[in-house]
Amino acid sequence: MINTFFYSLGQGIKNIFRNKWFTLASLATISACLFVFGIFVAVVFNVNHIVKTVEEGVSVTVYFNEGIEQERIDQIQDLVSKRPEVYRCDFISADEAWAEFSKKLGENAEGFTENPLADSENLQIYLNDVSKQADLVKYLESVEGIRKINKSELTANTLSGVKSVVTYVSIGMIILLLAVSIFLISNTVTIGISVRKEEITIMKYIGATDFFVRAPFVFEGMIIGLIGAAIPVIVLYVLYNTAFDFLRNNFSFLNDYISYVPASEVFMYLAPISIIIGVGIGFFGSFFTVRKHLRV
């Protein structure tokens, strides 16, 4: 069994060199498909990251009734913080609010001797999912001691919309790309193996088992799949870092608004997924294509 394993592996490797054109065609197809797939995944990662960053900046501000005690404010903050859709909940005292506001006013703030925002102590609530903003507001309206709730419905709705579109388009594109890849790659494998139909027939006449005939083809498919996946991953990694540096250096004004996902984070998922897809397609493509020729 061990002998057969190594023999089949050796034959699989030799076949890669024996059938150079088939190998090149398969490698090109797999690499091209996974390259497009990789670009798309990288874009989706970054779009999701940007949406998430913007999302985290959207907050709901809650103002309290006049003369409310600090103890009640603490209770409300505690209740709000425990809600699942809440990512962070900060208490801003009247002094902090004025300090922040006076910074924006600059010299114009100098005329004020007392804090004009004496009643503006508030809670800044950040959500982990802006689509849940309406639920949170509904809940806050039922909480005693709250005078006013400031929210940005337009931003929340726009972000929710963008997120849904990105999610659906990503899923759709990934399925489409995978389907196209599987179709193209299995076609290449089918043509490559059909050319070697005679070789399979000879093996079968001599008394080779289906396993013995199939194993070298499967190894060959898996190795081509592995290399075919590694090439676009490496190329994309280099391109991604180059593009990342280019955008950071040449469009530095964007850096305040947009942060990109580091290559290590994208490729931590993209590399294993691409390799699993490449090796998987190589395995199943050759396994099922050879099966058609085994009934001799």
Partner: peptide
């Protein structure tokens, strides 16, 4: 079908 290889040998 699985016995055919042994026979052919």
């Amino acid at each position: 079908h699985s016995k055919v290889p042994k026979f052919r040998r």
